[in-house]
């Protein structure tokens, strides 16, 4: 809730700026509405991208341990736990709707409209990531190479790939 009001306050500030500017530069108030929407959405997109980048970075730590025995099991397990924690923010960071089509002009954004048209299905996917990450963290501490490999494949396919297949668009 707090985050929401900060965003709203930010949006108002931007709106005020846009209106001031619109007096001199932008000819219609319609155009300034558009700018506000973009600034608000852009912040959401940035936050999402950073979270996913963090998930990827932690995934890399786990992958390097599983595939090439780099680092330690404890570090890999901590990375898996971190992914589980990041996964809990998915409902919040995807709350603001900003899709591929809408964001064409403001950089790389690969969210598919299906995220919002199938919001419950999307949230279920987030929960899968959370659960699989917890299992991964536990299995990494158990030490059995076969179980670790198997869980890593399930974790990646179900937790990451499954969601990306349905809800993430191509690079544009």
């Amino acid at each position: 809730m707090l985050r929401k009001s900060i965003l709203a306050a930010g949006a108002c500030a931007v709106a005020a700026g846009a209106v001031l500017m619109s007096n001199s530069v932008v000819p219609t108030s319609h155009a300034s509405d558009l700018q506000v929407a973009d600034a608000h959405e852009m912040a959401a997109v940035k936050q999402r991208q950073q979270t996913m980048k963090d998930v990827g970075g932690n995934m890399k730590i786990i992958a390097e341990f599983v595939k090439a025995s780099k680092g330690s099991a404890a570090e890999a397990s901590a990375a898996a736990a971190k992914i589980g924690e990041l996964a809990t923010s998915i409902p919040e960071i995807f709350e603001v709707k900003a899709t591929l089509e809408q964001m064409d002009t403001v950089g790389k954004n690969r969210s598919k409209p299906e995220i919002w048209s199938d919001w419950d299905g999307f949230l279920e996917r987030g929960k899968v990531l959370e659960d699989e990450a917890a299992k991964m963290a536990a299995v990494l501490n158990s030490g059995d190479a076969g179980t670790i490999q198997a869980q890593f494949a399930t974790f990646g396919k179900e937790g990451c790939g499954g969601c990306h297949t349905t809800y993430r668009g191509p690079e544009t």
């Binding site: 990827g56 890399k60 396919k157 499954g162 990306h164 993430r168």
Partner: peptide, 23 residues
């Protein structure tokens, strides 16, 4: 590894149409 489970060397997982090809 990318063809088997979708992982890239950066720790990303392929999705969209390639995700279907993998799945």
């Amino acid at each position: 590894g990318a063809l088997k489970i979708g992982i890239t060397p950066e720790g990303d997982f392929l999705g969209d149409s390639m995700g279907e090809v993998i799945e």
